[in-house]
């Protein structure tokens, strides 16, 4: 793994100096033993934590294979037997469960709002971090203040505004709701851009690059890890949000996103009939997200370590 490599080289670099000072270099068996004990303790703690974190996920998995469609109150593992049927049922659309349709709806909304949000956030971050213009600080503080106003509070107002424009009960409207105000979430990306030395931009400009070229060719490649973070987080929004979706998409089951669709499956009337299918559905949406995550994580680690050449 590349991050351990970096650490090893860092240690190698430091070792000649250590010999001169001769304070922290491990000596003899005592230190070695201590290290082994430490490693055992650390790995055990991690194992315990991992178990705690995975128990609900495990429950999700085993419940998805439960023959009993309702929730199992007495046993952790299915008691009446295992089946794959819950997954198959999801693909047979009925009036209450239109899983495939919901999935595609959400995918579409997530795709477009993710692109728009990421572009907006990057644009705003670059402007605030790397451009110097009159009123920059004022504008930053202003957007901080506006960002403090939570969307949930103004959702009724947003609903009425969208209705006036005619974008309720439409997926375009959902994309607008999720991405239009995303420029305000610049803080994290800007914080990352702030750590990139200004000299890199200046060097590029000396060679005649325009701001646009600097943004696209110099800064963006260095920001890869944080861009990835931004993409993940904005892609996840439509999958997790149900408040706006519920409010905006009306009562037509066809239009639902996965979130409100699955939420409806756990209502009081549906819980005994659809709990196992809910679990199966929950696992299925996790699949594209986890695949994305694995790809992203690779970029994340790589990006961050390549970013170490910045300094």
């Amino acid at each position: 793994m590349s991050d351990t490599n970096v650490k090893e080289t860092a240690e190698k670099k430091s070792s000649p100096k250590d010999i001169k000072v001769n304070t922290v270099e491990p000596k003899g068996m005592g230190v070695k033993k201590k290290r082994i004990v430490g490693a055992i303790v650390k790995n055990t703690v991690l194992a315990i934590l991992a178990v705690i974190w995975l128990i609900p996920i495990l429950w999700l998995f085993v419940s998805a294979f439960n023959v009993d469609p309702g929730i199992n109150y007495a046993h952790f593992f299915p008691s009446k037997g295992w089946t794959f049927n819950n997954f198959i049922q999801l693909f047979h659309a009925n009036s209450a469960v239109m899983y495939v349709r919901w999935f595609l709806n959400t995918l579409l909304i997530a795709f477009f709002s993710c692109i728009i949000s990421t572009v907006f956030v990057l644009m705003v971050s670059y402007a605030f971090s790397c451009c110097r213009f009159e009123g920059r600080k004022g504008l930053m503080s202003l957007s901080m203040v506006i960002n403090m106003f939570p969307g949930v509070l103004s959702m009724i107002a947003i609903y009425f505004i969208m209705k006036t424009i005619g974008l309720t009960e439409s997926h375009v409207g959902m994309v607008v709701v999720y991405s239009a105000g995303s420029g305000l979430g610049y803080l994290i990306v800007k914080g990352f851009m702030d750590t990139i030395p200004a000299s890199m931009r200046e060097a590029a400009k000396m060679e005649g690059a325009s701001e646009l070229t600097v943004f696209l060719k110099v800064i963006l490649p260095l920001c890869k890890p944080i861009v990835v973070y931004q993409i993940i987080s904005s892609f996840l929004v439509p999958w997790g949000d149900f408040v706006f979706a519920k409010l905006m998409l009306g009562h037509d089951v066809k239009n639902f996103t996965i979130a409100i669709g699955l939420y409806g499956m756990l209502s009081k009337e549906n819980l005994p009939r659809y709990f196992s299918q809910f679990c199966a559905g929950g696992i299925l949406i996790s699949i594209p997200i986890s695949i994305l995550f694995i790809i992203m994580q690779k970029y994340y680690v790589e990006g961050v370590t390549s970013g170490s050449t910045k300094g």
């Binding site: 934590l49 991992a50 974190w53 995975l54 609900p56 996920i57 429950w59 999700l60 996840l236 999958w239 997790g240 949000d241 149900f242 979130a259 699955l262 939420y263 756990l266 809910f278 679990c279 929950g282 696992i283 949406i285 996790s286 997200i289 986890s290 995550f293 994580q297």
Partner: peptide
């Protein structure tokens, strides 16, 4: 292992 818990959407895990 820890990231697996993020992969499942938050509202699914919360309802679960």
């Amino acid at each position: 292992l820890f990231i697996v818990t993020i992969a499942v959407p938050q509202f699914v895990t919360l309802l679960l």
